[in-house]
């Protein structure tokens, strides 16, 4: 049985439930645990990078859309200072998104070397 991010079994997210006004967008969002399972499957099928992606995604699954879109924007060339990146990374860590925090810190280091900071 697959649970949505809301914790509701996906089998309960029916047209009847929708008609009754009883379905939220969180009921059609993927659960981090499901992404972890998909990561394990990807690993078993010879793609550890896809698995790593799913594990970063599992962390992001819990974050609001606006925050995710904001971090993407921050990672584009010359959008952020080192301090900006450190703040983003710290915030991600505080939310338990340690893999993504590491990615942001890694980017900050490279961006400094390659002149891609703001």
């Amino acid at each position: 049985m697959t649970l949505a991010k809301s914790g509701r079994p996906v089998s309960e997210v029916t047209l009847d439930a929708l008609r009754a006004g009883d379905v939220d967008i969180e009921d059609v969002r993927i659960h981090p645990q499901t992404l972890e399972i998909q990561a394990q499957i990807a690993e078993e099928h010879g793609n550890p990078q896809l698995a790593a992606n799913f594990r970063r995604a599992a962390e992001l699954a819990l974050l609001p859309d606006s925050l995710v879109m904001g971090i993407y924007e921050a990672l584009r060339p010359r959008r952020s200072t080192r301090e900006d990146f450190e703040a983003v990374a710290a915030d991600l860590e505080a939310r338990g998104a340690v893999l993504n925090a590491a990615l942001v810190r890694e980017a900050a280091g490279i961006y400094l070397e390659r002149g891609l900071l703001r």
Partner: peptide
């Protein structure tokens, strides 16, 4: 890479 994970998320 982040965008890729955002979609998967």
């Amino acid at each position: 890479a982040f965008l890729t994970s955002a979609y998967a998320s």
